[in-house]
Design a protein around this nucleic acid. Structure first.
Lengths: 169, 169
DNA sequence: GACAAAAAGTTAGATATCGAATGTTTCGAT
DNA sequence: ATCGAAACATTCGATATCTAACTTTTTGTC
């Protein structure tokens, strides 16, 4: 399956992340939640009253996506949104009692999952692993490769809407 | 952001995979494709005339998802599907000339991306990295943790449709 | 040989995500 | 003081994915 000299790093990374993430989601579903619900609860808990921009950034999703989850979770009674009287542009998000309770339940499931995930992997190997992950992120964010043309001023035609790239493979 | 003793492995893995995958998709889009198109072309190339079940497994997606992509790519003239005369259940997938051409273009982009991704990472570190990835996969696939109750015979009520869990975080 | 079970794909409906456009509210420059 | 720019959030439309149900074709059992 590879016209590459070496097994491609990115593919291996993506496939592993996919199976691990799916397993994690399954564990959370069994505990009565979902992965998006868990990360949302986690972000709200860790910075209560933060605005949605910050929450989304913490989770690693876009604001529009967070809005979607907050709508659902608010409808489920897990959290509330109210406008900040200090700055009426921002919506302050806070957990309800039900939200707090679900957080505790899912936290237990998440801890158990993490424990299982680390089986047989001593801390030093995991530390080295995390360093490589950081290096990969850095290599990708310093894009010294794909800039044959960067978004210049030429070509300002009424360009049609760029389709959303929803990436998961 | 973490009520965990140590930084959770899975979260770090998922976030890294996400940014790397998004960057990869962006590179492929710039080259005139997308990530799903690339992996589909790659799988078809690597085992021409394979059936769709095998292709999907190679890519790591479900058959239904592959059907979706094949429909689009067939409409774009990148590939053809014909029923196997030996076994009329299977659809044999083959690339058209346009499909072959796009494959070559995207292959170049993918190689460039992989090169950039490896910057500063010697082979021995990447080998260790791959071993940890494999261990994580194994830890998750040997689920000795979440089986308080396994899908038993009790509770065979007309259970409502289980919603699709589309996981990406 | 008939017919149920299995195998391969497609279709249907749902969730998660994204980018762009839009709506509100605040800020800043003159 | 006004008015355009920026910040925050939501809405809109699209892509990618999943599970379950369905259709068609083959296989296996009696």
């Amino acid at each position: 399956m590879t016209p590459f000299d070496r097994p491609p790093v990115g593919m291996n990374l993506a496939r592993t992340a996919k199976v691990v993430t799916q397993a994690f989601d399954a564990a959370l579903v069994e505990a009565g939640g979902t992965l998006p619900v868990w990360v949302t609860l986690l972000s709200v808990k860790s910075r209560e009253l933060a605005n949605q921009r910050e929450l989304a950034g913490m989770i690693g999703i876009q604001g529009a996506t967070l809005t979607h989850h907050l709508n659902a979770m608010e409808a489920q009674g897990l959290l509330t949104r109210r406008r900040d009287p200090e700055n009426r542009r921002v919506h302050q998000v806070a957990l309800t009692a039900a939200g707090e309770a679900l957080f505790e339940t899912l936290r237990t499931a998440a801890l158990a999952f993490d424990r299982q995930l680390r089986v047989g992997l001593p801390d030093d190997r995991l530390a080295e692993f995390a360093e490589v992950l950081a290096a990969l992120r850095a290599n990708v964010e310093a894009p010294s490769f794909g800039l044959a043309d960067f978004p210049g001023d030429k070509n300002d035609l009424p360009r049609s809407r760029k389709p959303a790239r929803n990436v998961k493979s």
